[in-house]
Each structure stands twice: as C-alpha cells, then as structure tokens.
Design a protein around this nucleic acid. Structure first.
Length: 663
DNA sequence: GGGAATTATACGT
DNA sequence: TTCCAACGTATAATTCCC
C-alpha cells in the first residue's frame, strides 16, 4: 500500500509511517508517548500477517473512494455549487432555529474503568502498567500502560511488545457491572432519567438540579465526581455543555479525573467548535475523517459549514445534515425515548479452520448461545444473519428471513446451517449469528429520504418516564445528537410465558423458507411476514442445491450430483440419541426430515468425494470464491457492473434520522 | 415506485 | 512462542416483488 500524499516522503525507508493504525490516534493518556516508536513496533508486529493484508485491502478501498469523491468534486460546476449553497443557507437557518441553549448536559466518563475496577480489587496493581484482557485483545489499559502506547482494542501480544512488564488481568464483567450500578445510583440522584451510554459512561440533564440548588453546571460536575469517588473509589471525568454532543467532547478534554465546562452561549460554542478537529466528534471515525480531509480538505468542524455546499453535493442528505449541524455546534438536547433493541447476536473467534465438522459444531454452539440469550430476554425474531470472518479477515454476512418468529436453537441452527453450507468450503476464524426483526417491531421507513423542506429538528418532546429503562445501553453516539422521537415499540413487553406458546407452535410448523408448503391456510396471508412462494421458492431451492453440490464437488465431475440424488430417501444411521449427527455433532430433531436428508446427503457426498480423490474439497474454491471480491455481489450487480457510485454516500451514524420525520 | 430483503461498511464501547 | 474481540446500531446500495 502506498499512502498517496499523506506521507509521500520516505515511504520505503520508514514504511511504518504509512501504516495508519488506530492505535496512534490522539487519545486521553497518550500524550508524551513516542508515537513513532509505537507506530514502528505495531507495524513490525503486524507486517505480513493476514490481518495486516486485510487492513491494506481496506485502505486501498478507502483511497479509491476518496479518489472518486475528488473526481466528482472536480466536476461540480460553479452553478451546481451555488445551488447547493442555497440549500446550505436555508438549512443553516432551519438548524439555527432549533438551537436550544437552555439545557445543561453533563457527560460522565469513568477513567480507564475496567482497569480501575481491577486495581480496586487488587491494590497491588496500583502504579504498575496493567491491561484488562488477554493476548489476543485488550479491553482497557491503565494510565501507566498508556504511557507505553498500550491502549484499548490493541491485541495483547503487541501491547506486551510495547510494554514487556505489562500485567494482564482477565475481564470480569460481573465486577464492572457491580461498580457501574454504584455509579448509576449517583447519576440517578442528579437526573433520574439519565442516559447510560455504556457501563462506564452516561449523559445527565442537570438543568433542573442546577436551578433547584442554585449551582452552576461546573459545581454540580465537581460534586458528582466527588460523590462517585466516595461511593466507588473510582475517578471519572466530566464535560458540561448545552447538548450531548458537545458534553461528550468536553468530557475528554481534561481526562483523567478532570472536567471541562463549555458556556451555554452561542458565540462561545461557535468559537469552541471552530477549531475542533472533526475526529473529536462522536460518530466521525477513521474513515470519515480521512474522506473529509483528503477529498474535501475539511479538518475542523468550522470547515464543515464553510464547505457545506460540497457536503450537500457529495453526501447523502442525512450525512450532510449531520456534518452541518456539527459545524454549528448543535446536538441533542432532549431526553430521547428509550429505544428497544433491534437485534441480538452472538459470535466467537477461534483458530481459523476449514474443517467442516468443526465449523458445524461451532455453529451449533453459537446457535445455542444465541437462543439462550433470546429466551433470557424474551425475544423472538425472524431474520437470521450469519457472519463469517474468513482466515483472511474478510467479513461476510448472509441472511435469511424466516416465515415465523422464533428463538429456538433448532430453528436458528437449521437456517444457519444452510447459510453456512452455501459458503463451504471456506476457512473461517469467526462465526457469528444475529437475529433481528423482532416480533412487534415496526420497520422504519427511511425518514432521511424526505425532502429537504421536511427537515426541521423536532423541538424537545416532553420527557418520558424512563425509570430504569435508561440503563439499556443506547449507543453513545446516538445520544449525542438526536432529538429522538422514534416510537418505542416494546418488544420487551412480550412476556416469555406468552412467547413459549408461539415458539412451541412454530417448532411444529413449517418455517423452512426453502420448503414449498402447500398448506399455509392456518395463517392468514397478511399475517404472515412475507413468504417466498411459488417460483421464488423453487428458484431458491435450486440455487441452494446448486451451491451445495458445488461446494462439495468442485474438484470432481457431474456424477457426484448423481450420487447425491441417487441416495435413498430413508434415514441413514447418522443420528445419535435420535437427533445428533454422529459425524459432525450437529443437532437436528427427527421432525426436520428434509434437513436431515440434506445433511446426510452432504456427508455421503463428502465421503464419496474423499474416496475418489482424497480430501480436496477445501482446497478448491467454490464458484463464489473464485470470482473474487466482487463476485459475491455479482448475483445482484450483474446488470450494471460499472455502476460504482457507492462513494456518493458514506454512512454516518446519523443522529438525525429519527428526529426529522415529522415537521 | 415503494417496501422488504440482503449484503457491506462504519462506528462506538 | 503467541499474531487483532464481542456486541449493537446505523446507513446505503442493490435487487426483487407487488
């Protein structure tokens, strides 16, 4: 990978300079770190690894995106720009009208939370460089360790290289949850409706406390921090500002054990924002930062307003809206309603393997874990997504929507197995399963597609009684900005007792989307979440068969297909205890006749193949693999292979979408 | 043309 | 010696069906 102009000098003699690792970002506690040394060591440790190669691939894609955006930028005529400028001017007025400087928000962020908790329970760790996590990944590092360049999300083996005396402490969430609860008790006394961002951070609307007690935001912050300390023995940092977005930025300024207050005054806010690097904003990460800087020359928030016309010309409306509002120092000021969760997932990393038996048994484990979690939360869902991280770190996801809502591990595994089967042979290091589209969930129509004139930020809606629900982990970034008025449709309201009936019913009924089921009268059509029918089903069925054969028999000839179909339709002797495959351990209840048949066919074909040619299936990539990166999509993209305008819209964690739908 | 489904990607803790 | 997590949310592009 070369790095264009960002480090055009000396690329060959100092290659690490172009290795843009996230570990060298300016973060709290990283001042005084020999960044070049860190960068060099991280580079040396990573160089040539599969992980590194994947990073290079991703970086190349990003460059391409930036180039494309530059091209588009160059093609904009001055009349285009002046038109977009009109849009910007209008939007600035609209946004400005929503500015609310009447609230005082406080963002609390615990200092090196996990590490601090561990030190609390083992004081001998005090003063020594320590990291919570293992050799593969670190969750948090204490400030002593950060001096060496060690930080969260860094693999442990690199951290140890940077800091040979680093002490590793395994993660213990029970402990962190306990201390998190203690902090939340304190938070609640200042704002009963506080928003928990994660275990270690929260947003509090302290407007009322300030008024009632005649104290300034800064004074309340001092008091809260010392209260947190006396209750837990842990230090935290705080930011006080007119909205959540700014408060979050502020809490980072005097970390650790410090605070920063930004006056609720428009010109103060504008001055603050004017020199603020865009990367400081929650929701703007490495990629967005690069795109903004290298394609548009935007480094500070102020420049987002100055170059607003470019943003509206090149980005989606929701992204441009977000950028512009950031440039104006706007952010969420109301307390959004609690959002119900959208998905639930489980994933595990392991030593990369192509061994199908192993993969299927991993899959079964994960399906079981996921099902367990869903039952614990009383959730049923109908869309299953399989996630694979291949040995080369490429992430793939494959999804199916079932006909019915379920949380049973059998259902999950059954569909997951099919999804996985279609990907074989493949060597993977991670398998994940996610269930989404919960029962009772209202699907979002995309509010960002609305016209520009629709865009008016909702003034604060009356605050809801959130009770303890606010401990539901809302993603921090969303809390920064959105004046969220989205409907909360409590999937949690459904009790498990009620769901159990549904599940049991489902277990007996046909949920297999590949099956042509003549008898669906039991459910009225409009009550059924979209079902594949007729030709679509057949087609899908065929496709799957095709894929199956492919993955099994790539290296051999067509007669394998014969072998599969010739196999007798009776159950072979593969099932132990009536449900467990003796060969791979996969669990399929007797009622899953067709799945069992397929599964048996699979093993048979495998055996035939092995007898014929030794074990070669995993060495011969399937059709999909051969086609390379674009191939997977080729099914969809085949019509317009050159329509690669994907760089037009970069995803921004929109803080707006929900807030602007009604105006 | 709209909505749903599928896939990929970004971001945060 | 070791060789980069787990989980959740969101946006967007594309394709397909109605």
């Amino acid at each position: 990978m070369d790095n264009g102009e960002s480090s055009s000098t000396n690329n060959s003699s100092r290659p690490w300079e172009s290795y843009n690792t996230v570990f060298t970002n300016a973060k709290a506690g990283m001042e005084g770190v020999d960044k070049e040394k860190v960068q060099r060591i991280v580079y040396e440790m990573s160089k040539g690894s599969k992980y590194f190669q994947n990073e290079e691939r991703k970086e190349a894609l990003m460059k391409q995106k930036i180039e494309h955006m530059r091209d588009r930028c160059a093609k904009l005529s001055s009349s285009d720009l002046s038109n977009y400028q009109k849009v910007v001017d209008k939007r600035i007025l609209e946004l400005e009208a929503t500015r609310d400087l009447s609230r005082i928000w406080l963002h609390v962020d615990m200092d090196a939370f996990y590490a601090a908790v561990e030190t609390l329970s083992d004081p001998s760790l005090k003063g020594k460089p320590m990291a919570v996590g293992g050799l593969s990944m670190i969750s948090t590092a204490n400030y002593e360790a950060r001096k060496f360049g060690v930080r969260a999300a860094m693999p442990g083996f690199i951290a140890r290289k940077l800091c040979p005396n680093l002490i590793f402490v395994p993660v213990d969430f029970t402990k962190y949850t306990y201390y998190s609860d203690l902090t939340r008790k304190v938070f609640r006394s200042y704002d009963p409706h506080f928003i928990a961002g994660s275990l270690d951070e929260a947003y509090l609307d302290i407007t009322e406390v300030c008024q009632e007690r005649g104290l300034s935001g800064g004074e309340i912050a001092e008091e809260l921090r010392s209260s947190v300390y006396s209750e837990t023995g842990l230090t935290c940092s705080a930011g006080v500002a007119a909205n959540r977005l700014l408060a979050k930025v502020c809490s980072d300024i005097n970390k650790p054990n410090g605070q920063f207050l930004l006056q609720n005054d428009r010109s103060t806010v504008m001055t603050f924002v004017s020199s603020l690097p865009v990367r400081k904003i929650g929701g703007i990460g490495k990629v967005t930062e690069h795109i903004l800087k290298d394609a548009l020359g935007i480094k500070t928030c102020e420049e987002m307003v100055q170059k607003g016309s470019l943003l509206y010309a090149l980005f989606s409306q929701s992204s441009a809206d977000f950028f512009l509002s950031v440039g104006l120092g706007l952010g969420g000021t109301n307390t959004p309603q609690v959002r119900s969760r959208k998905s639930i997932s489980s994933e595990r990393t392991f030593a990369a393997t192509g061994d199908e038996r192993l993969l299927y048994s991993k899959l079964a484990e994960i399906a079981e874990m996921l099902s367990h979690d869903m039952k614990k939360e009383g959730l049923t869902a109908r869309t299953l997504t399989l996630k694979l991280k291949t040995a080369s770190f490429e992430i793939r996801s494959r999804a199916v929507s079932m006909q019915r809502y379920t949380c049973s591990s059998d259902d999950i595994l059954k569909h997951a197995t099919k999804l996985l089967k279609a990907e074989l042979p493949v060597s993977v290091r991670l398998i994940g399963l996610r269930m989404s589209q919960f029962v009772g969930e209202i699907r979002n129509s995309d509010p960002s597609q609305g016209t520009i004139t629709k865009f008016i930020i909702q003034k604060d809606s009356s605050r809801q009684d959130l009770d303890d629900n606010n401990s539901f982990d809302l993603e921090a970034s969303k809390n920064c900005l959105s004046n969220d008025v989205s409907l909360s449709f409590g999937s949690h309201e459904t009790s498990y007792a009620h769901l159990k009936d549904v599940v049991e019913y489902e277990e007996q009924s046909q949920i297999d989307s590949e099956k042509v089921i003549p008898n669906q009268e039991c459910v009225k059509k409009e009550e059924r979440p979209q079902v594949l029918e007729g030709d679509a089903l057949l087609k899908k069925h065929k496709e799957c068969k095709l894929d199956t054969n492919h993955s099994m028999n790539d290296s051999s000839n067509a007669q394998n297909t014969e072998a599969v179909s010739v196999y007798p339709q009776t159950e072979p002797l593969y099932w132990v205890d009536g449900y467990k495959c003796v060969l791979c351990g996969i669990e399929l209840p007797p009622s899953f006749v067709e799945e069992r048949q397929e599964h048996s066919d699979f093993h048979l074909a495998q055996r035939l193949q092995n007898e014929e040619s030794g074990s070669s299936s995993s060495t011969t990539p399937s059709k999909r693999r051969i086609l390379g990166k674009e191939k997977v999509n080729s099914k969809r993209k085949k019509q317009k292979p050159d329509q690669k305008d994907s760089s037009k819209h970069i995803p921004i964690h929109s803080f707006f979408t929900k807030s602007n739908q009604n105006s």
